[in-house]
Simulated scan of single mutants.
Amino acid sequence: MAVPTNKDELLKAIDLNFDKLIKDLRGVPGSLVDECSLEGHARGTQMSVADLVAYLVGWNELVLKWLDRDAAGEPVDFPETGFKWNELGRLAQKFYRDYEGVPYPQLIERLAEAKARIVALIEARNNDDLYGHPWYEKWTMGRMIQFNTASPYANARGRLRTWLKTKNVSRQS
C-alpha cells in the first residue's frame, strides 16, 4: 500500500493493516503467547508475542499522548520524555515492562481501544490539520501517526506470520 497523503488514505491504511494484524494475533495459541522466541525490537534480543502487542499498545498510547498534548496546546516531547529517536530499542523494552502483567486477551483489547481512539481523533481533524503543514520537524501530523500505527501494524504482522510459520501454526489469510 502506498504511503497515505490524506485523511481518507490514512484511515484506510490504519484500518486495513490493523484488521489483518488483529486477526493473526487472535489466532496465536495461548500456549505460545509468552514464549520469548521472536526477534526483539532491540538488536540481539528476543521477545514474546505478548511483548509485540505491548510494543504496539505502547506506541499507540504514545500517539494518543502526543495528540492530547497538541490539542491542549502543550509541547510534545518526541518520541517520549527521557528518550531520543536513537533509543527506540530502549523504549521498546520499557513498553514490554509497562504491560508485562497484563493478560494477553486484555493486551489485544487495549490495542483495539487505543487504535479506535486514534481513528476517532483523526476523524475529528481535517485534511489540512493532518497533512497541510509540518508538525514535527519536516513531518506532518498524518505522517507521524502513520509512522506509529499503520506501518508498525504491517511490520508486526510480517514478524508474526514468519514466526507462526516456524512454529507450524496454521494461520488464515
Rank of each mutant, 00 (worst) to 15 (best):
M1F: 09
M1C: 08
M1T: 12
V3N: 06
P4H: 01
K7W: 00
D8K: 15
E9P: 02
E9Q: 15
L11T: 08
N17M: 05
K20M: 12
K20C: 11
K23R: 15
D24R: 15
D24F: 11
D24C: 10
D24E: 12
S31L: 09
V33W: 06
D34C: 03
S37N: 15
G40H: 06
A42M: 13
R43T: 10
G44Q: 03
T45Q: 10
T45P: 04
Q46K: 15
Q46D: 03
Q46N: 09
M47P: 04
V49A: 14
A50Y: 05
A50T: 06
D51A: 09
Y55C: 04
V57H: 01
V57N: 01
E61Q: 13
V63H: 08
V63Y: 01
V63I: 12
L64V: 11
W66C: 00
L67P: 06
R69T: 10
E74D: 12
P75R: 09
T81Y: 06
G82Q: 02
W85E: 12
W85Q: 10
L88F: 11
R90F: 14
A92F: 06
Q93N: 13
Q93P: 00
F95M: 07
Y96D: 08
Y99H: 15
Y104N: 07
P105Y: 03
L107P: 02
L107H: 01
I108N: 00
E109P: 07
R110T: 03
R110L: 01
R110E: 03
R110Q: 02
E113Q: 13
E113I: 10
A114Y: 05
A116I: 05
R117K: 14
R117F: 05
R117E: 14
A120W: 00
L121I: 07
I122M: 01
R125E: 05
N126H: 11
N127R: 09
N127S: 13
L130P: 04
Y131W: 14
Y131I: 05
Y131D: 06
Y136L: 11
E137V: 04
E137S: 09
K138V: 13
K138D: 09
M141R: 14
M144F: 06
I145D: 01
Q146P: 02
N148P: 07
S151E: 15
N155F: 14
N155Y: 14
A156P: 08
G158R: 14
G158D: 12
R159M: 13
L160D: 03
L160F: 05
R161V: 15
T162P: 07
L164Y: 00
L164E: 03
T166W: 04
Q172N: 09
Q172A: 13
S173Y: 10
